[in-house]
Design a protein around this nucleic acid. Structure first.
Lengths: 138, 138
DNA sequence: ATAAAACCTACAAATTATATAGGCTTTATG
DNA sequence: CATAAAGCCTATATAATTTGTAGGTTTTAT
């Protein structure tokens, strides 16, 4: 399951995407809209900014705004940033690979093979689908 | 990511599957083979037994054995039993459904739609693949 | 100068995952 | 029939992670 952090990130991105014309949006506006703790969301938005998805303006009249076009924000990127691996096992993760301690031979592990398939099918979707797609559905 | 519990369960099932002809297998034999804590594995095997996958024999010369044919043990069943939902969001879970608090309207949630696709593709694999397939790979 | 806002770091609380403890029950065997 | 070996059961302890809070710093419009 995705963490709340990731879910909140998607909500925030969606909100910012819908309001791209309105300039900088307050953290508070987003947090109130979804009933998310202001401070918690603050941390999340900061991470999204550092990762290059958002821009911000400090001081009075400041706030956050999308810095990338929605169609360039793949869902997989957001999940990886906030939740880490998408794969179901460390030994099949592309970005967070680790061998399984219990397995002497990953090449001959049946579970490994299945989980590679799951990973690939999942990524097919999450790498193709972008914030744009989310916005178009709503 | 799958929990260790689930991973250990798969290891144990695989081991029992490979040794179906040898009668009851000691917890200890499995735990030593994979370097899993005896007591932790004990709990896991008990759950698998209660769920109808394993049988056991108590007392001297006792142990565990598969009670279902490997081709009837879908990977999805094991994951759900020990880890809970396979879906990435509660609002798209078939077996552990819960609405998202922040969402006023799940019907018009773009994320929901994507995650249903991910769930379906994942389940296509995990419901089709069984312990038998794992055994055949190893 | 002031107030509003993001920035930053650290910490606190809650939840979940992992592991351990220890006694109970069953059973093969000498 | 006594004994030891094994699973059964429930509770608790420990560790890790997630979620949330606190409080001060910096920037900026007015």
């Amino acid at each position: 399951m995705l963490s709340k952090k990731t879910k909140y990130a998607f909500h925030a991105l969606t909100y910012l995407g819908k309001n791209q014309d309105k300039g900088a949006i307050l953290i508070q506006e987003i947090s109130e809209n979804y009933g998310i703790s202001h401070k918690f969301l603050e941390n999340i938005l900061l991470e999204l900014k550092k990762a290059g998805f958002l821009g911000s303006k400090k001081g009075k009249g400041g706030g956050y705004y999308l810095i990338k076009p929605p169609n360039e924000i793949a869902l997989s990127r957001i999940i990886r940033l906030l939740d880490g691996p998408i794969a179901l096992l460390p030994c099949v993760s592309l970005n967070y690979y680790e061998p399984c301690e219990e397995c002497e031979n990953q090449e001959r592990c049946g579970l490994n093979k299945v989980m590679i398939r799951v990973r690939d099918e999942t990524l097919k979707i999450l790498e193709m689908k972008t914030l744009q797609d989310i916005l178009e559905e709503e």
